[in-house]
Write a protein that binds this DNA or RNA. Structure first.
Lengths: 208, 208
DNA sequence: GGTATAATCTGAACACTGTCAAGTTAACTG
DNA sequence: CAGTTAACTTGACAGTGTTCAGATTATACC
């Protein structure tokens, strides 16, 4: 129960500390600055210490990604919890939440969708599935489908919505939209065009 | 004019050989296997040789990315050149070309949209712009706009279309769609759902 | 309490990597 | 043919992921 750090050995909860440290490194310095040794240094532990808990770098990054998917799920859920709105409005809010999560944690977002840097474990799949099922449920509602059967039309709608927000986030983070916005106004540009782009989905236009 | 390789020094056209070698490495072994030294080995030169021509790794990768954008442009243009079709059909074809380019060269596609691995030169911007302007022109036609003025509505349509195909390619390459397809049928799944997803764009539905 | 055992971490090493300064050779230029 | 410049090598340095034998500490058991 001692929270004071030991001088040597037996950190106390090194596993969590390493995951947290890795997360901080990603947020503060980006994915290029990440290294196992840097994470070890930050935790005040030897370079080989992470290997004991995670095997290799992929093992540690997998844990970070899992927490990323959990946070994404939390944000998407929170975005639809604020008051009763129409399914279409909720889907809009979820798209916003998805993209803003990416903007808030670019390095983490990129990591989460780079399978070659991780070990595809059941835990990782589960956390990713949780995030996706939120999208699926909301798209179902917006499409006016109550049953749990996933029709091909519904799947197409889900893929379209997911691809759209995912692609938008990715292109924006990569600076591809600097083509359109004058320097310094990229955030404003995105704020304007996120709803406009999402509005281009057939699902989200008023049924005529 | 000697095409025979020298025993030492003065490769002949090392610059091109390195760019080509890097491209091959990406195609054959993925981005994780890429390293400046590996490229140098493949070309039969010393580890420091690439630095003379490109400065650092980012310099070489930038050249590779430029050629990637050029190839993407070529494919998109070719997809719309095959016979006279409606603008909407051409836009569909371009979406297909975009995604299939990504499928054919996953590592190259990823590289092209990772600015932190490259040096954002004017040449790079120009080749990326060329690819994008093809999309812009076709979206304009599909939207029934002939003038060169880019309205906000048109921009929204372009962003939506681009984000959609880009996101689809990205998610598919990352294995996120294995969620839906049984093992081994991912290609078939994509063939089925690429047009369905693209068809979810409001722009591409018959005007009612 | 004392001791075996398991969990946790260190230290040293290996084979890599990108990058740099200085030296070496080939090709061009006048 | 001499001098200059372009093209590459050599050797080195700091940093990386990973492995492994061993040191250290916590825990379980008697």
């Amino acid at each position: 129960m001692t929270t004071a750090p030991r001088a040597t050995y037996h950190h106390g909860d090194l596993r969590s500390a390493l995951i947290l440290g890795a997360q901080e490194l990603l947020v503060e310095q980006g994915i290029e600055a990440f290294s196992l040794r840097a994470v070890a240094r930050r935790a005040g532990v030897s370079p080989a210490a992470p290997a004991y808990h995670f095997g290799d770098a992929a093992g540690l990054l997998t844990e970070v990604a899992i927490r990323g998917f959990n946070e994404l799920t939390r944000r998407m859920a929170a975005s639809t919890d604020a008051g009763p709105r129409s399914p279409v409005e909720r889907l809009h809010a979820m798209g916003h939440a998805y993209i803003h999560f990416a903007f808030a944690n670019p390095a983490l977002f990129h990591l989460m969708f780079r399978k070659e840097k991780m070990r595809i474990t059941d835990a990782l799949k589960a956390s990713a599935n949780a995030a996706f099922s939120h999208l699926q449920a909301t798209v179902s509602e917006a499409a006016g489908i109550s049953g749990q059967h996933v029709s091909e039309d519904l799947l197409a709608s889900m893929l379209a919505a997911w691809s759209m927000v995912h692609g938008f986030a990715h292109l924006a983070l990569d600076g591809q939209f600097e083509r359109f916005a004058t320097p310094g106004t990229l955030d404003a540009f995105c704020d304007t065009y996120i709803p406009r782009a999402i509005g281009q989905l057939r699902l989200l236009t008023p049924v005529s």
